[in-house]
Design a protein around this nucleic acid. Structure first.
Length: 310
RNA sequence: GCCGAGAUAGCUCAGUUGGUAGAGCAUGCGACUGAAAAUCGCAGGGUCGACAGUUCAAGUCUGUCUCUCGGCA
């Protein structure tokens, strides 16, 4: 297979939850001798399978997959870890002469790769975060925001005043590195020739697919999966904030009926779809959009052929 | 049939001593650089059940009617 001479190709398949990314990307990756790198913040964790709609064991064997089941639920992965690992993997795949397929729905992770984000190299300091959170609670989010505005006005501009979590991260970086958070927020050139394939479907179809998928998850033992996880991990570990897991944990604690929990899962998944679409815009020229309810795989295939022959 | 409670945003409900309405959720839109399936923000949307009366002014007071829920028959 002939690869573009200057920059090596990276095929990104992005799209919202329940659209059908897994199935399609498997077919395409198989055809083009590809390897799939997951761009999904909840597929890292072993044992979180049903509720994350993780590809099945069989599917994982069709083509090589990366960044799935790489750690346990109490070992939190994050943007920085993701970016480092992903960049390394893309390089390795290119060396093997294969094509990397970045597939997923976590907009932040995808943009870190496609837009060359330079993520501040500072791993989280849980104790400092705790201190900062307490401080914020004490003086109020607004007051904390005023402090941030004084220390790093540029960073403050990018953060909404009520958003404690993002303020805490910014202050954490500032206090530990002695540098402004905003000054560490850089971009670098992207060393790949990137094709972005966006998958979507009409909204009412997505809603139907979400409902059906949640029901299916419940039938496939989602509740048992959550119960099993809770026997080993606290429900407060970040991975357990995944959609579905937190609601079923509430049911198991007795603070929610099962019916209510299932409805809630459907509801927040629909909300999640909308939030995902703020990363993947229809007006984004870099994305070739396909409506999976109308288009066949050969249309997408054609798009990839063109890209690879350029 | 009688007694009681209620009828306000798509839904669940607030609404002080009368001054033409708010919240949460839903919906739409958005932000996002090591928790991101997280976290945070903005917006639209109501002839306040109907009709009459009192009043400068009624979601709010009075009367009648319609409907809903509960209790008694």
């Amino acid at each position: 297979m002939q690869l573009p001479p200057d920059k090596l190709p990276l095929i990104v398949i992005l799209g919202p939850t329940a659209v059908g990314k897994t199935k399609l990307s498997l077919q395409l990756a198989k055809k083009y001798q590809g390897e799939i790198i997951s761009a999904d913040s909840r597929l890292f964790y072993r044992g979180m399978d049903i509720g994350t709609a993780k590809p099945s064991k069989e599917e994982l064997q069709i083509v090589p997959h990366h960044l799935i089941d790489v750690t346990d639920p109490d070992d939190t992965w994050s943007l920085g870890r993701y970016k480092d690992a992903c960049v390394r993997l893309i390089d390795e795949i290119h060396r093997r002469g294969n094509i990397p397929f970045l597939v997923g729905g976590t907009g932040q992770y995808i943009r870190a790769i496609t837009d060359g984000w330079v993520v501040p190299k500072l791993s989280p300091d849980e104790r400092l975060r705790e201190v900062l959170n307490e401080w914020g609670e004490e003086i109020g989010a607004e007051a904390l925001y005023e402090r941030l505005k004084v220390i790093d006005p540029e960073a403050a501009e990018k953060i909404l005043p009520g958003n404690m979590r993002r303020m805490v991260r910014a202050l954490e970086v500032i206090f530990k590195t002695g540098q402004k958070f905003s000054s560490l927020r850089k971009k670098e050139p992207v060393p790949y020739n990137v094709l972005q394939i966006g998958l979507d479907r009409p909204r009412h179809i997505i809603d139907e697919r979400i409902d059906a998928r949640v029901d299916e998850m419940m039938q496939n033992g989602f509740l048992e999966e959550v119960a099993h996880l809770l026997a080993h991990y606290s429900k407060d570990v970040p991975s357990m904030t995944a959609i579905g897991y937190s609601q079923l944990a509430e049911y198991l604690e007795g603070s929610l009926d099962l019916d209510e929990a299932v409805e809630e899962i459907k509801k927040v998944t629909r909300k999640f779809y909308r939030r995902q679409m703020t990363w993947f815009k229809k007006g984004d020229e870099r994305i070739d959009w396909f409506d999976l309810s109308e288009v066949s795989i050969s249309d997408i295939d054609l798009c990839i052929q063109q890209f690879l022959s350029e």
